[in-house]
Simulated assay, not measured.
Amino acid sequence: MTAAATVSLTDVASYLPGEPVGLDFFTDGTDGLRDSAMFRAPRWRHHVAADETNVDLVERAVQPLVERHGHRAIRGVDVLLVHTQLPDLPIVGAGTEIARRLGLRPDWLLDVANAGCASFVHMLRLARQIMTTTDARSALVCNAQTAAGQLFTQSHVRRLAQAAIPGDGCGVAYLTAGGPSPILDVTTHHLGEYAGDMRLVADDGRRYWETRESQLRIGFTEAAVAAVLERGNRLVPEVVGELCQRLGVPTSRIDVLITNQPNRTFLHNWREALGVPPDRHPDTFAECGNMFGAAMPVTLDHAVRAGRVRDGDLVVFGGFAHAGDFAGAMAVEWHGPAR
Rank of each mutant, 00 (worst) to 15 (best):
A3M: 08
V12N: 04
L16M: 10
L16W: 02
P20G: 08
V21M: 05
G29P: 01
S36L: 01
A37T: 04
F39W: 07
A41P: 06
R45S: 12
H46V: 12
A49K: 09
A49V: 00
A49C: 00
D51G: 06
T53Y: 10
V58K: 06
V62L: 09
V62H: 05
R68N: 10
G70D: 11
V79R: 03
L80K: 06
L81S: 04
Q85S: 09
L89A: 12
L89Q: 11
P90L: 14
I91N: 04
V92G: 00
G93W: 01
T96P: 00
E97S: 15
I98R: 03
L102W: 09
L102A: 07
L102I: 10
D111Q: 08
F120D: 01
A127K: 03
Q129I: 09
I130T: 13
S138N: 05
V157Q: 01
Y174Q: 05
L200A: 13
R206M: 02
Y208W: 12
E213Q: 14
S214D: 12
F220D: 03
F220Y: 14
A223H: 07
V228E: 01
G232C: 09
L235E: 11
L235D: 11
L235Q: 15
E238V: 14
G241K: 10
G241E: 01
E242C: 09
L243M: 08
L243Q: 10
Q245C: 01
T251I: 11
I254C: 03
D255M: 05
P262I: 01
R264M: 06
H268M: 07
H268W: 10
A273R: 09
G275A: 11
P277W: 06
P277M: 07
P277C: 04
D279T: 14
R280F: 08
R280D: 05
A286M: 01
A286N: 12
F292Q: 09
A295G: 12
M296R: 09
P297E: 09
L300R: 09
R305Q: 14
D313I: 12
V316C: 05
H322A: 15
G324H: 11
A327Y: 03
M330F: 09
